[in-house]
């Protein structure tokens, strides 16, 4: 099994706030890694460190055997890392197709406009947005914007896909669809890290799970191991709603 991404002792501070403390893990190719933790645990910060938005103060990030710790975020994109945003970031005044073409044109394959048009058509079909290709991205609803984020990331033909709460704000049938989509993306050979609050979903799709709490990695393991881990349950007691969810879902 080849290691696609290796995060080694990554530490990040914002002023006096310790956002990440020595986060360390290896991600083998083809896996889905779930990243969970209470609000403010540093999950999105870890994404930002991995894809070069805020380079970490300490530690190294190795992607496909290259040190990318201090590389710019666009370099990460070109090397094959793509992500979606927790708060959707559509390019409002461009059409849905053009949004996806940006991903294709400037992503790993550096596609030409013509090639990108074909890629966009294919990817939009996959995320079931094809009918809205000519609409302005700003006119989509939230669930559609989430799928647009996904389409843009996929169009880049990435090796690694970072999904930041793609399920948040969706209703249960939309969640079901999205989970299926994530699974079929993995089947295409794309490695995934997903930040998620919807426990049932993350437990069902992840091969492994890492739990962050106050920037510290408090547990790592298979979904079964995580749901029985005392430290995790303790951490979630600080966030009663999530603790309750976790416990309830375990009983299912």
């Amino acid at each position: 099994m080849t290691v696609l991404l290796s995060v080694q002792g990554v530490t990040k501070r914002f002023g006096g706030l310790q956002a990440l403390t020595h986060v360390t893990f290896d991600l083998p190719e083809g896996q889905i890694l779930g990243l969970i933790g209470p609000n403010g645990a540093g999950k999105t910060t870890l994404f930002n460190a991995i894809n070069g938005i805020y380079p970490p103060e300490e530690g190294r990030i190795i992607f496909r055997e290259k040190d990318v710790t201090t590389a710019k975020t666009y370099d990460h994109a070109r090397m094959g890392m793509a992500r979606t945003h927790q708060i959707v970031q559509p390019l409002n005044d461009l059409t849905v197709r053009e949004n996806v073409m940006v991903g294709a044109c400037f992503g790993r394959e550096n596609q030409s406009l013509g090639h990108a048009t074909d890629t966009a058509a294919e990817v939009l079909n996959f995320v079931e947005l094809a009918a809205r290709s000519d609409q302005l991205a700003g006119s989509l609803n939230v669930a559609q914007k989430k799928r647009l984020e996904m389409a843009r990331a996929l169009a880049a033909r990435p090796y690694l896909l970072l999904l930041d709460e793609v399920l948040a704000g969706l209703n249960s049938s939309e969640i079901g669809n999205m989970v299926e989509m994530v699974k079929s993306i993995r089947e295409r050979g794309i490695t995934i890290i997903m930040i998620e609050h919807v426990m049932k979903a993350v437990m069902s799709v992840s091969d492994r799970i890492i739990v962050l709490d106050y920037g510290e990695q408090i547990a790592e393991g298979t979904p079964e191991e995580i749901s029985n881990n005392e430290k995790v349950i303790e951490a979630y007691l600080g966030d009663p709603k999530l603790a309750e969810k976790l416990l309830r879902e375990q009983e299912d």
Binding site: I53, T73, Y74, D93, G103, A156
Partner: peptide, 10 residues
């Protein structure tokens, strides 16, 4: 439209 998002896309 969004410079930060554009950079994330490469």
């Amino acid at each position: 439209e969004n410079e930060d998002a554009a950079e994330v896309m490469g």
